[in-house]
Amino acid sequence: MQQSRPSVFIRTHFDACTGCQLCQAACSLHMFGGYNPRKSMLTIRRKWENMAHIPVVCEQCASPMCLRACPVQAISRDEKTKVVGIDREKCISCGLCDRYCPLGMIHLDAESGKAFKCDLCDGSPSCVKACPTGALDLITSPIRPGDAAEGQS
């Protein structure tokens, strides 16, 4: 079974993250055309009051639980980019993808009820560009897409 991840991925560095949420503002702008960090595809977990900030991004998993949980096959991996995407026409707003993503990376839009997730911004993620501290890094995998076996990318 061909199941590889995209050739680029976002690496997070919690030690550089200040919790400023500029990544989330950039993401909501990309996805919805306006600013509201609540409407972004990545999250920042906070620990010890406001001391540690741990950015969490979609890993475009090799074996995505959201994809498996979707009852109507609205979630699929793009053959070319390997990004795990959601077809909103097919999405029936059941929320099962959200329930079974252990990282909480599915965003259920309060207005439409539809599911959204990180699309890696066509390989040039807005969140990475917006980060002022280098807490989000764009890494290009040395392994060409399609070469890697499951779980090795």
């Binding site: 030690d15 200040t18 919790g19 400023c20 949420q21 500029l22 503002a25 960090p37 010890w48 009051e49 406001n50 001391m51 540690a52 900030h53 002022p132 501290t133």
Partner: peptide
């Protein structure tokens, strides 16, 4: 131990 920022701030003047 760690820096922290208010929303939208690149300065992050807080040291937690």
């Amino acid at each position: 131990l760690s820096r922290a920022a208010c929303f939208g701030c690149p300065i992050a003047c807080t040291q937690m």
